[in-house]
Nucleic acid binder design. Sequence first.
DNA 1: ACGGGTACTTACCAAAAGGTGCATACTTGA
DNA 2: TCAAGTATGCACCTTTTGGTAAGTACCCGT
Lengths: 121, 121
Amino acid sequence: MAKENSENPRFICGLHATLHVISGKWKPLILFFLNKGPTRYGELKRSVRGVSDKMLIQQLKELESDGIVERTDYGEIPLRVDYSLTLFGVNLVRAMEPLCGWGETHQGDIAAAMDRRKVSR
Amino acid sequence: MAKENSENPRFICGLHATLHVISGKWKPLILFFLNKGPTRYGELKRSVRGVSDKMLIQQLKELESDGIVERTDYGEIPLRVDYSLTLFGVNLVRAMEPLCGWGETHQGDIAAAMDRRKVSR
DNA sequence: ACGGGTACTTACCAAAAGGTGCATACTTGA
DNA sequence: TCAAGTATGCACCTTTTGGTAAGTACCCGT
């Protein structure tokens, strides 16, 4: 078990801790869309364009395990399952909001940066 | 070149755009430490515990290419190079601050979540 | 009996990301 | 001549992440 002391702390800083929860190609986007309210699996998949079933389910399971997201199974057929944010998750998404704003504001710059990276490969 | 229209937009949302800039295991931490002011390469490496030279240099190059970070070579021997945030970078790090706060507040929960993930593998 | 729907599983594979180990350049001091 | 310092390069390798394709469970309607 990892020792938690000042000599070898688990996390370098608060940001480091947060990154462990939100790392994964799709997690930030999943959380972003769940911020709109409880969402069915299929609807979430349509919102998070490009994600595969395998990854969506895997990352939802991890978010559930971490206490960020909760899963509601209505026990119907066809299956109807909702995913929603816990209070813990709502606070996390709130902390992510400035990143949304920054990205909105700088989409042009970011697209240009991506093009530069592509060219220099 | 990717078409930017409402039918097939480059980014799903602002957050998606931001993620393209900060994705990479070490980038958020690099930015976090550079927020303290211009930093020498060696000092930055010591701060970002665990990073290899290869990755630190690679991710610094990408951040520089994206206009987030600037590199100052003093032309001395031994080499002395400083890395610092551009204004663009300072604004990005400001947007990341709530994530630092969230992580600070929830380090215990996050550590517990990580332990649960480890057990269920 | 079969196909539809939704949500999810799994084996195998590919791609991406990250790391190791050794190397380089250059001036200075021993 | 060699070692020291700092910053960086590169070939090869390992690990992690993500994707594909085919499959599953279950009830209902045709």
